[in-house]
Nucleic acid binder design. Sequence first.
DNA 1: AGCAGAGTGTAACATTTGTTACACTTCGAT
DNA 2: ATCGAAGTGTAACAAATGTTACACTCTGCT
Lengths: 223, 223
Amino acid sequence: MFEILKLSPLFAGLDTLEINLLINKVFYQIRSFSNNEVLAFSGERVEKAMILLEGKLQGEMVDFSGSTLKIEEIEPPQMVAPAFLYGPQSFFPVNLSALSDGKILIIVKKDFTQLLANDLRVLNNYLNIVSGKAQFLSRKITFLSFKTIREKIAYYLLNHLKTGMMIVSLNQSQKGLAEVFGVARPSLARTISEMEEEQIFRWERNQVIILNLQSLRSILGKY
Amino acid sequence: MFEILKLSPLFAGLDTLEINLLINKVFYQIRSFSNNEVLAFSGERVEKAMILLEGKLQGEMVDFSGSTLKIEEIEPPQMVAPAFLYGPQSFFPVNLSALSDGKILIIVKKDFTQLLANDLRVLNNYLNIVSGKAQFLSRKITFLSFKTIREKIAYYLLNHLKTGMMIVSLNQSQKGLAEVFGVARPSLARTISEMEEEQIFRWERNQVIILNLQSLRSILGKY
DNA sequence: AGCAGAGTGTAACATTTGTTACACTTCGAT
DNA sequence: ATCGAAGTGTAACAAATGTTACACTCTGCT
Protein backbone atom coordinates (compact mmCIF):
# COMPACT_ATOMS: atom_id res chain seq x y z
CA MET A 1 0.00 0.00 0.00
CA PHE A 2 2.70 2.47 0.93
CA GLU A 3 4.34 1.94 -2.42
CA ILE A 4 1.19 3.16 -4.08
CA LEU A 5 0.79 6.09 -1.71
CA LYS A 6 4.32 7.17 -2.43
CA LEU A 7 3.19 7.95 -5.97
CA SER A 8 0.26 10.06 -4.86
CA PRO A 9 0.53 13.85 -4.98
CA LEU A 10 -0.39 13.96 -1.31
CA PHE A 11 2.70 12.09 -0.22
CA ALA A 12 5.09 13.42 -2.82
CA GLY A 13 8.57 13.81 -1.47
CA LEU A 14 8.19 11.28 1.31
CA ASP A 15 9.65 7.80 1.32
CA THR A 16 7.75 4.64 2.12
CA LEU A 17 8.92 4.48 5.70
CA GLU A 18 7.90 8.03 6.47
CA ILE A 19 4.48 7.48 4.98
CA ASN A 20 4.12 4.34 7.03
CA LEU A 21 4.95 6.17 10.25
CA LEU A 22 2.60 9.04 9.49
CA ILE A 23 -0.34 6.89 8.53
CA ASN A 24 0.05 4.68 11.53
CA LYS A 25 -0.13 7.63 13.86
CA VAL A 26 -3.75 8.13 12.94
CA PHE A 27 -6.75 5.88 12.68
CA TYR A 28 -7.33 4.62 9.19
CA GLN A 29 -9.32 2.00 7.41
CA ILE A 30 -9.08 0.17 4.13
CA ARG A 31 -12.27 -0.55 2.33
CA SER A 32 -12.77 -2.84 -0.61
CA PHE A 33 -15.47 -2.13 -3.11
CA SER A 34 -16.82 -4.04 -6.04
CA ASN A 35 -17.83 -3.01 -9.49
CA ASN A 36 -20.94 -0.82 -9.77
CA GLU A 37 -21.10 -0.28 -6.05
CA VAL A 38 -22.16 3.23 -5.04
CA LEU A 39 -19.71 4.58 -2.49
CA ALA A 40 -21.37 7.90 -1.83
CA PHE A 41 -24.42 9.78 -2.92
CA SER A 42 -24.56 13.32 -4.11
CA GLY A 43 -25.43 15.59 -1.22
CA GLU A 44 -24.02 13.24 1.41
CA ARG A 45 -21.62 14.88 3.86
CA VAL A 46 -17.95 14.34 3.20
CA GLU A 47 -16.56 13.28 6.55
CA LYS A 48 -13.63 11.19 5.50
CA ALA A 49 -10.60 11.66 3.33
CA MET A 50 -10.49 8.97 0.69
CA ILE A 51 -7.53 7.95 -1.37
CA LEU A 52 -8.06 5.50 -4.16
CA LEU A 53 -5.55 2.64 -3.99
CA GLU A 54 -6.81 0.24 -6.63
CA GLY A 55 -9.55 0.22 -9.22
CA LYS A 56 -11.42 3.02 -10.87
CA LEU A 57 -14.14 5.30 -9.63
CA GLN A 58 -16.52 7.61 -11.36
CA GLY A 59 -18.38 10.73 -10.34
CA GLU A 60 -21.82 11.15 -11.83
CA MET A 61 -23.57 14.45 -11.59
CA VAL A 62 -27.25 14.15 -10.79
CA ASP A 63 -29.65 16.72 -12.09
CA PHE A 64 -33.00 17.84 -10.76
CA SER A 65 -34.99 15.41 -12.80
CA GLY A 66 -33.08 12.50 -11.32
CA SER A 67 -31.06 11.44 -14.31
CA THR A 68 -27.30 11.28 -14.21
CA LEU A 69 -25.42 13.59 -16.47
CA LYS A 70 -21.77 14.40 -16.60
CA ILE A 71 -18.94 12.19 -15.58
CA GLU A 72 -15.50 12.45 -14.05
CA GLU A 73 -13.16 9.53 -13.60
CA ILE A 74 -10.78 8.99 -10.73
CA GLU A 75 -7.78 6.71 -10.89
CA PRO A 76 -5.26 5.69 -8.25
CA PRO A 77 -3.51 7.07 -6.39
CA GLN A 78 -5.68 10.17 -6.46
CA MET A 79 -7.71 11.56 -3.62
CA VAL A 80 -11.46 11.60 -3.98
CA ALA A 81 -13.03 15.07 -3.89
CA PRO A 82 -10.07 16.79 -2.20
CA ALA A 83 -11.72 20.20 -2.39
CA PHE A 84 -14.88 19.00 -0.68
CA LEU A 85 -13.46 17.61 2.54
CA TYR A 86 -13.35 21.03 4.14
CA GLY A 87 -15.32 24.18 3.50
CA PRO A 88 -18.77 25.45 4.41
CA GLN A 89 -20.57 23.06 2.07
CA SER A 90 -18.65 19.88 2.51
CA PHE A 91 -20.93 17.46 0.75
CA PHE A 92 -20.42 15.38 -2.35
CA PRO A 93 -21.20 17.19 -5.57
CA VAL A 94 -21.59 13.88 -7.38
CA ASN A 95 -22.62 10.29 -6.95
CA LEU A 96 -19.49 8.27 -6.41
CA SER A 97 -19.65 4.82 -7.95
CA ALA A 98 -17.19 2.11 -8.85
CA LEU A 99 -16.19 1.22 -12.39
CA SER A 100 -14.30 -1.84 -11.21
CA ASP A 101 -13.34 -3.72 -8.09
CA GLY A 102 -10.85 -1.88 -5.95
CA LYS A 103 -9.74 -0.51 -2.61
CA ILE A 104 -9.71 2.85 -0.92
CA LEU A 105 -7.88 4.19 2.07
CA ILE A 106 -10.18 6.03 4.42
CA ILE A 107 -9.17 8.49 7.11
CA VAL A 108 -11.79 10.39 9.06
CA LYS A 109 -11.61 14.14 8.72
CA LYS A 110 -10.35 14.82 12.23
CA ASP A 111 -7.51 12.34 11.89
CA PHE A 112 -6.72 13.61 8.45
CA THR A 113 -6.36 17.14 9.80
CA GLN A 114 -3.99 15.72 12.41
CA LEU A 115 -2.03 13.95 9.69
CA LEU A 116 -1.60 17.23 7.84
CA ALA A 117 -0.43 18.97 10.98
CA ASN A 118 2.08 16.19 11.68
CA ASP A 119 4.10 16.71 8.56
CA LEU A 120 4.73 20.03 6.88
CA ARG A 121 5.41 18.37 3.54
CA VAL A 122 2.09 16.56 3.47
CA LEU A 123 0.35 19.74 4.55
CA ASN A 124 2.05 21.60 1.75
CA ASN A 125 1.12 18.89 -0.71
CA TYR A 126 -2.51 18.96 0.29
CA LEU A 127 -2.64 22.74 0.09
CA ASN A 128 -1.13 22.44 -3.36
CA ILE A 129 -3.79 19.96 -4.42
CA VAL A 130 -6.73 22.01 -3.19
CA SER A 131 -5.29 25.29 -4.42
CA GLY A 132 -4.53 23.70 -7.75
CA LYS A 133 -8.17 22.70 -8.02
CA ALA A 134 -9.28 26.23 -7.24
CA GLN A 135 -6.87 27.65 -9.79
CA PHE A 136 -8.02 25.22 -12.42
CA LEU A 137 -11.62 26.21 -11.81
CA SER A 138 -10.71 29.87 -11.81
CA ARG A 139 -9.12 29.58 -15.23
CA LYS A 140 -12.09 27.63 -16.49
CA ILE A 141 -14.40 30.43 -15.43
CA THR A 142 -12.25 33.02 -17.12
CA PHE A 143 -12.61 30.98 -20.24
CA LEU A 144 -16.33 30.43 -19.91
CA SER A 145 -16.86 34.13 -19.38
CA PHE A 146 -15.93 34.79 -22.98
CA LYS A 147 -19.18 34.93 -24.84
CA THR A 148 -18.40 34.70 -28.51
CA ILE A 149 -16.57 31.95 -30.33
CA ARG A 150 -14.13 34.53 -31.68
CA GLU A 151 -13.13 35.46 -28.15
CA LYS A 152 -12.67 31.86 -27.18
CA ILE A 153 -10.46 31.17 -30.17
CA ALA A 154 -8.40 34.30 -29.52
CA TYR A 155 -7.97 33.45 -25.85
CA TYR A 156 -7.04 29.87 -26.61
CA LEU A 157 -4.46 30.82 -29.22
CA LEU A 158 -2.88 33.59 -27.15
CA ASN A 159 -2.60 31.25 -24.20
CA HIS A 160 -0.94 28.53 -26.23
CA LEU A 161 1.37 30.90 -28.04
CA LYS A 162 4.95 30.54 -26.89
CA THR A 163 6.58 33.93 -26.59
CA GLY A 164 8.41 34.96 -29.71
CA MET A 165 6.75 32.30 -31.82
CA MET A 166 4.01 32.86 -34.32
CA ILE A 167 2.88 29.25 -34.45
CA VAL A 168 0.51 27.46 -32.13
CA SER A 169 0.62 23.71 -32.41
CA LEU A 170 -2.67 21.91 -31.91
CA ASN A 171 -2.94 18.69 -29.98
CA GLN A 172 -6.67 18.61 -30.42
CA SER A 173 -8.84 18.03 -33.41
CA GLN A 174 -11.24 20.77 -34.36
CA LYS A 175 -13.98 18.54 -33.10
CA GLY A 176 -12.27 18.19 -29.74
CA LEU A 177 -11.75 21.92 -29.50
CA ALA A 178 -15.42 22.52 -30.15
CA GLU A 179 -16.19 20.34 -27.13
CA VAL A 180 -13.74 22.18 -24.91
CA PHE A 181 -15.26 25.46 -26.02
CA GLY A 182 -18.73 24.13 -25.47
CA VAL A 183 -19.89 25.06 -28.96
CA ALA A 184 -21.15 23.18 -31.99
CA ARG A 185 -18.47 21.92 -34.32
CA PRO A 186 -19.71 23.58 -37.53
CA SER A 187 -20.07 26.87 -35.69
CA LEU A 188 -16.43 26.71 -34.71
CA ALA A 189 -15.40 25.85 -38.26
CA ARG A 190 -17.39 28.79 -39.58
CA THR A 191 -15.78 31.28 -37.24
CA ILE A 192 -12.34 29.88 -38.07
CA SER A 193 -13.09 30.39 -41.77
CA GLU A 194 -14.13 33.98 -41.14
CA MET A 195 -10.98 34.72 -39.19
CA GLU A 196 -8.82 33.17 -41.89
CA GLU A 197 -10.67 35.34 -44.39
CA GLU A 198 -9.64 38.36 -42.33
CA GLN A 199 -5.98 37.30 -42.48
CA ILE A 200 -5.79 36.89 -38.72
CA PHE A 201 -4.26 33.43 -38.97
CA ARG A 202 -3.87 30.41 -41.17
CA TRP A 203 -5.42 27.30 -39.61
CA GLU A 204 -3.74 24.10 -40.69
CA ARG A 205 -4.39 20.60 -39.53
CA ASN A 206 -1.90 20.45 -36.70
CA GLN A 207 -0.90 24.05 -36.23
CA VAL A 208 -2.10 27.60 -36.50
CA ILE A 209 0.09 30.29 -37.98
CA ILE A 210 -0.62 33.71 -36.52
CA LEU A 211 -0.59 36.36 -39.22
CA ASN A 212 -1.89 39.36 -37.29
CA LEU A 213 -1.15 39.23 -33.58
CA GLN A 214 -2.41 42.76 -33.14
CA SER A 215 -5.94 42.06 -34.25
CA LEU A 216 -6.01 38.76 -32.36
CA ARG A 217 -5.28 40.69 -29.17
CA SER A 218 -7.78 43.40 -29.94
CA ILE A 219 -10.56 40.80 -29.93
CA LEU A 220 -10.06 40.43 -26.19
CA GLY A 221 -9.53 44.11 -25.51
CA LYS A 222 -12.87 45.73 -25.02
CA TYR A 223 -11.58 49.28 -25.00
CA MET B 1 -4.26 44.46 15.34
CA PHE B 2 -5.18 41.24 17.08
CA GLU B 3 -8.66 42.55 17.67
CA ILE B 4 -9.09 42.84 13.91
CA LEU B 5 -7.55 39.45 13.23
CA LYS B 6 -9.94 37.87 15.69
CA LEU B 7 -12.75 38.76 13.30
CA SER B 8 -11.05 37.17 10.29
CA PRO B 9 -12.20 33.75 9.11
CA LEU B 10 -8.64 32.51 9.43
CA PHE B 11 -8.53 33.03 13.18
CA ALA B 12 -12.13 32.22 13.93
CA GLY B 13 -12.51 30.51 17.28
CA LEU B 14 -9.29 31.85 18.77
CA ASP B 15 -9.04 34.59 21.32
CA THR B 16 -6.78 37.61 21.07
CA LEU B 17 -4.10 36.14 23.28
CA GLU B 18 -3.87 32.91 21.32
CA ILE B 19 -3.59 34.82 18.06
CA ASN B 20 -0.88 36.97 19.56
CA LEU B 21 1.13 33.94 20.62
CA LEU B 22 0.75 32.22 17.26
CA ILE B 23 1.67 35.23 15.18
CA ASN B 24 4.67 36.01 17.29
CA LYS B 25 6.06 32.54 16.77
CA VAL B 26 6.64 33.31 13.12
CA PHE B 27 8.19 36.19 11.23
CA TYR B 28 5.70 38.76 10.10
CA GLN B 29 5.61 42.24 8.77
CA ILE B 30 3.09 45.03 8.62
CA ARG B 31 3.03 47.13 5.54
CA SER B 32 1.24 50.40 5.01
CA PHE B 33 0.01 51.34 1.58
CA SER B 34 -1.51 54.46 0.18
CA ASN B 35 -4.38 55.03 -2.17
CA ASN B 36 -3.85 53.94 -5.79
CA GLU B 37 -0.66 52.11 -4.97
CA VAL B 38 -0.20 48.85 -6.86
CA LEU B 39 0.68 46.12 -4.42
CA ALA B 40 1.14 43.28 -6.88
CA PHE B 41 0.99 42.75 -10.57
CA SER B 42 -0.88 40.04 -12.38
CA GLY B 43 1.48 37.16 -13.08
CA GLU B 44 3.76 37.96 -10.14
CA ARG B 45 4.50 35.02 -7.86
CA VAL B 46 2.53 34.84 -4.64
CA GLU B 47 5.15 34.23 -1.99
CA LYS B 48 3.51 35.75 1.01
CA ALA B 49 0.24 35.38 2.81
CA MET B 50 -1.46 38.74 3.06
CA ILE B 51 -4.26 39.70 5.37
CA LEU B 52 -5.87 43.06 4.91
CA LEU B 53 -6.08 44.95 8.24
CA GLU B 54 -7.27 48.37 7.17
CA GLY B 55 -8.40 50.02 3.96
CA LYS B 56 -9.73 48.57 0.77
CA LEU B 57 -8.06 46.71 -2.06
CA GLN B 58 -9.15 45.85 -5.55
CA GLY B 59 -8.24 43.13 -8.01
CA GLU B 60 -8.19 44.17 -11.63
CA MET B 61 -8.05 41.57 -14.32
CA VAL B 62 -5.72 42.48 -17.14
CA ASP B 63 -6.43 41.25 -20.62
CA PHE B 64 -4.09 40.61 -23.51
CA SER B 65 -4.41 44.05 -24.99
CA GLY B 66 -3.29 45.64 -21.74
CA SER B 67 -6.53 47.16 -20.57
CA THR B 68 -8.01 46.31 -17.21
CA LEU B 69 -11.35 44.61 -17.16
CA LYS B 70 -13.18 43.03 -14.31
CA ILE B 71 -12.93 43.91 -10.67
CA GLU B 72 -13.10 42.24 -7.29
CA GLU B 73 -12.99 44.13 -4.03
CA ILE B 74 -11.34 42.99 -0.82
CA GLU B 75 -12.18 44.35 2.60
CA PRO B 76 -10.68 43.69 6.01
CA PRO B 77 -10.11 41.35 7.62
CA GLN B 78 -10.01 39.11 4.58
CA MET B 79 -7.03 37.31 3.16
CA VAL B 80 -5.79 38.33 -0.24
CA ALA B 81 -5.89 35.58 -2.88
CA PRO B 82 -6.08 32.68 -0.38
CA ALA B 83 -6.38 30.10 -3.14
CA PHE B 84 -3.28 31.32 -4.92
CA LEU B 85 -0.72 31.03 -2.16
CA TYR B 86 -0.20 27.35 -2.82
CA GLY B 87 -0.71 25.27 -5.91
CA PRO B 88 1.23 24.64 -9.10
CA GLN B 89 0.51 28.07 -10.54
CA SER B 90 0.86 30.30 -7.53
CA PHE B 91 0.86 33.68 -9.19
CA PHE B 92 -1.55 36.55 -8.95
CA PRO B 93 -4.49 36.29 -11.34
CA VAL B 94 -5.09 40.04 -11.03
CA ASN B 95 -3.39 43.34 -10.46
CA LEU B 96 -3.74 44.19 -6.80
CA SER B 97 -4.18 47.89 -6.16
CA ALA B 98 -5.32 50.05 -3.30
CA LEU B 99 -8.62 51.90 -3.23
CA SER B 100 -7.64 53.76 -0.07
CA ASP B 101 -4.84 54.07 2.45
CA GLY B 102 -4.47 51.02 4.64
CA LYS B 103 -2.35 48.29 6.16
CA ILE B 104 -1.71 44.64 5.47
CA LEU B 105 -0.17 41.89 7.54
CA ILE B 106 2.40 39.94 5.58
CA ILE B 107 3.71 36.49 6.40
CA VAL B 108 6.06 34.72 4.04
CA LYS B 109 4.77 31.44 2.71
CA LYS B 110 7.15 29.23 4.65
CA ASP B 111 6.28 30.86 7.94
CA PHE B 112 2.62 30.81 7.08
CA THR B 113 2.79 27.06 6.52
CA GLN B 114 4.43 26.78 9.92
CA LEU B 115 1.67 28.88 11.43
CA LEU B 116 -0.94 26.52 10.03
CA ALA B 117 0.87 23.52 11.40
CA ASN B 118 1.14 25.13 14.84
CA ASP B 119 -2.56 25.30 15.44
CA LEU B 120 -5.11 22.80 14.25
CA ARG B 121 -7.91 25.35 14.39
CA VAL B 122 -6.13 27.81 12.15
CA LEU B 123 -5.24 24.98 9.79
CA ASN B 124 -8.87 23.94 9.70
CA ASN B 125 -9.96 27.51 9.10
CA TYR B 126 -7.59 27.97 6.23
CA LEU B 127 -8.62 24.69 4.66
CA ASN B 128 -12.20 25.87 4.98
CA ILE B 129 -11.40 29.13 3.26
CA VAL B 130 -9.59 27.57 0.33
CA SER B 131 -12.09 24.74 -0.04
CA GLY B 132 -14.91 27.24 0.16
CA LYS B 133 -13.36 29.13 -2.71
CA ALA B 134 -13.08 25.95 -4.76
CA GLN B 135 -16.68 25.04 -4.01
CA PHE B 136 -17.87 28.49 -4.90
CA LEU B 137 -16.06 28.30 -8.21
CA SER B 138 -17.38 24.81 -8.83
CA ARG B 139 -20.96 25.96 -8.38
CA LYS B 140 -20.33 28.94 -10.59
CA ILE B 141 -19.14 26.64 -13.35
CA THR B 142 -22.16 24.41 -13.00
CA PHE B 143 -24.24 27.49 -13.44
CA LEU B 144 -22.29 28.84 -16.38
CA SER B 145 -22.55 25.50 -18.13
CA PHE B 146 -26.26 26.03 -18.63
CA LYS B 147 -26.60 27.47 -22.08
CA THR B 148 -30.08 28.86 -22.39
CA ILE B 149 -31.75 31.49 -20.26
CA ARG B 150 -34.58 29.03 -19.57
CA GLU B 151 -32.12 26.62 -17.99
CA LYS B 152 -30.55 29.32 -15.89
CA ILE B 153 -33.91 30.44 -14.59
CA ALA B 154 -34.96 26.87 -13.84
CA TYR B 155 -31.71 26.12 -12.03
CA TYR B 156 -31.87 29.33 -10.05
CA LEU B 157 -35.44 28.77 -8.95
CA LEU B 158 -34.95 25.12 -8.06
CA ASN B 159 -31.91 26.02 -6.00
CA HIS B 160 -33.70 28.74 -4.11
CA LEU B 161 -36.81 26.69 -3.55
CA LYS B 162 -37.21 25.62 0.04
CA THR B 163 -38.44 22.06 0.22
CA GLY B 164 -42.17 21.81 0.47
CA MET B 165 -42.70 25.41 -0.55
CA MET B 166 -43.91 26.59 -3.89
CA ILE B 167 -42.68 30.14 -3.50
CA VAL B 168 -39.23 31.49 -4.16
CA SER B 169 -38.58 34.91 -2.67
CA LEU B 170 -36.36 37.18 -4.68
CA ASN B 171 -33.76 39.39 -3.09
CA GLN B 172 -32.57 40.62 -6.44
CA SER B 173 -34.15 42.87 -9.00
CA GLN B 174 -34.70 41.42 -12.43
CA LYS B 175 -31.92 43.67 -13.58
CA GLY B 176 -29.59 42.27 -10.94
CA LEU B 177 -30.51 38.72 -11.88
CA ALA B 178 -29.72 39.43 -15.50
CA GLU B 179 -26.21 40.44 -14.44
CA VAL B 180 -25.73 37.31 -12.36
CA PHE B 181 -26.90 35.24 -15.30
CA GLY B 182 -24.65 37.15 -17.64
CA VAL B 183 -27.48 37.93 -20.06
CA ALA B 184 -29.17 41.07 -21.32
CA ARG B 185 -32.00 42.34 -19.18
CA PRO B 186 -34.72 42.43 -21.88
CA SER B 187 -33.76 38.90 -22.91
CA LEU B 188 -34.34 37.70 -19.37
CA ALA B 189 -37.68 39.53 -19.21
CA ARG B 190 -38.75 37.96 -22.47
CA THR B 191 -37.97 34.44 -21.35
CA ILE B 192 -39.77 35.06 -18.06
CA SER B 193 -42.84 36.18 -20.01
CA GLU B 194 -42.73 33.06 -22.13
CA MET B 195 -42.50 30.81 -19.10
CA GLU B 196 -45.38 32.63 -17.42
CA GLU B 197 -47.34 32.14 -20.62
CA GLU B 198 -46.71 28.40 -20.30
CA GLN B 199 -48.06 28.41 -16.74
CA ILE B 200 -44.75 27.32 -15.29
CA PHE B 201 -44.73 30.06 -12.67
CA ARG B 202 -46.10 33.46 -11.81
CA TRP B 203 -43.34 36.04 -11.47
CA GLU B 204 -44.16 38.82 -9.08
CA ARG B 205 -42.02 41.67 -7.92
CA ASN B 206 -40.51 40.06 -4.87
CA GLN B 207 -41.40 36.43 -5.28
CA VAL B 208 -42.00 33.71 -7.78
CA ILE B 209 -44.87 31.29 -7.37
CA ILE B 210 -44.15 27.92 -8.90
CA LEU B 211 -47.18 26.55 -10.72
CA ASN B 212 -45.69 23.53 -12.44
CA LEU B 213 -42.70 22.06 -10.66
CA GLN B 214 -42.67 19.10 -13.01
CA SER B 215 -42.02 21.10 -16.14
CA LEU B 216 -39.53 23.33 -14.34
CA ARG B 217 -37.52 20.23 -13.51
CA SER B 218 -37.82 18.79 -16.98
CA ILE B 219 -36.05 21.84 -18.37
CA LEU B 220 -32.86 20.64 -16.68
CA GLY B 221 -33.38 16.97 -17.42
CA LYS B 222 -31.87 16.15 -20.76
CA TYR B 223 -33.19 12.65 -20.93
C1' DA C 1 -4.13 0.35 -54.05
C1' DG C 2 -8.34 0.46 -51.92
C1' DC C 3 -11.27 0.87 -48.07
C1' DA C 4 -13.39 2.56 -43.78
C1' DG C 5 -13.75 5.84 -40.39
C1' DA C 6 -12.79 10.12 -38.50
C1' DG C 7 -12.28 14.74 -39.26
C1' DT C 8 -13.20 18.97 -42.09
C1' DG C 9 -15.43 22.76 -45.11
C1' DT C 10 -19.60 24.66 -46.22
C1' DA C 11 -24.37 25.81 -47.03
C1' DA C 12 -29.33 26.73 -45.81
C1' DC C 13 -32.20 27.33 -42.33
C1' DA C 14 -33.93 27.55 -37.31
C1' DT C 15 -33.34 29.19 -32.79
C1' DT C 16 -31.68 31.98 -29.29
C1' DT C 17 -29.97 36.03 -27.57
C1' DG C 18 -28.53 40.88 -27.91
C1' DT C 19 -29.70 45.80 -28.99
C1' DT C 20 -32.35 49.69 -28.94
C1' DA C 21 -36.21 52.17 -27.98
C1' DC C 22 -40.15 53.58 -25.55
C1' DA C 23 -44.14 53.48 -22.51
C1' DC C 24 -45.48 52.14 -18.04
C1' DT C 25 -45.06 51.07 -12.95
C1' DT C 26 -43.12 51.29 -8.37
C1' DC C 27 -41.23 53.50 -4.57
C1' DG C 28 -38.81 56.56 -1.77
C1' DA C 29 -37.51 61.41 -0.92
C1' DT C 30 -38.89 66.00 -0.68
C1' DA D 1 -48.95 64.54 -3.12
C1' DT D 2 -45.58 64.97 -6.50
C1' DC D 3 -41.45 64.25 -8.59
C1' DG D 4 -37.79 61.57 -10.34
C1' DA D 5 -35.02 57.60 -10.45
C1' DA D 6 -34.93 52.85 -10.95
C1' DG D 7 -37.06 48.95 -12.48
C1' DT D 8 -40.26 46.45 -15.74
C1' DG D 9 -42.95 44.87 -20.05
C1' DT D 10 -42.69 44.69 -24.77
C1' DA D 11 -41.70 45.16 -29.63
C1' DA D 12 -38.86 45.27 -33.93
C1' DC D 13 -34.76 44.22 -35.64
C1' DA D 14 -29.71 42.55 -35.70
C1' DA D 15 -26.27 39.28 -34.60
C1' DA D 16 -24.56 34.97 -33.12
C1' DT D 17 -24.90 30.27 -32.70
C1' DG D 18 -27.13 25.73 -33.34
C1' DT D 19 -28.91 22.07 -36.53
C1' DT D 20 -28.82 19.27 -40.31
C1' DA D 21 -27.03 17.65 -44.34
C1' DC D 22 -23.67 16.43 -47.64
C1' DA D 23 -19.36 16.28 -50.11
C1' DC D 24 -14.59 16.17 -49.46
C1' DT D 25 -9.95 15.04 -47.31
C1' DC D 26 -6.93 12.70 -44.52
C1' DT D 27 -5.06 8.58 -42.24
C1' DG D 28 -4.18 4.00 -41.00
C1' DC D 29 -4.98 -0.69 -42.22
C1' DT D 30 -5.30 -4.76 -45.06
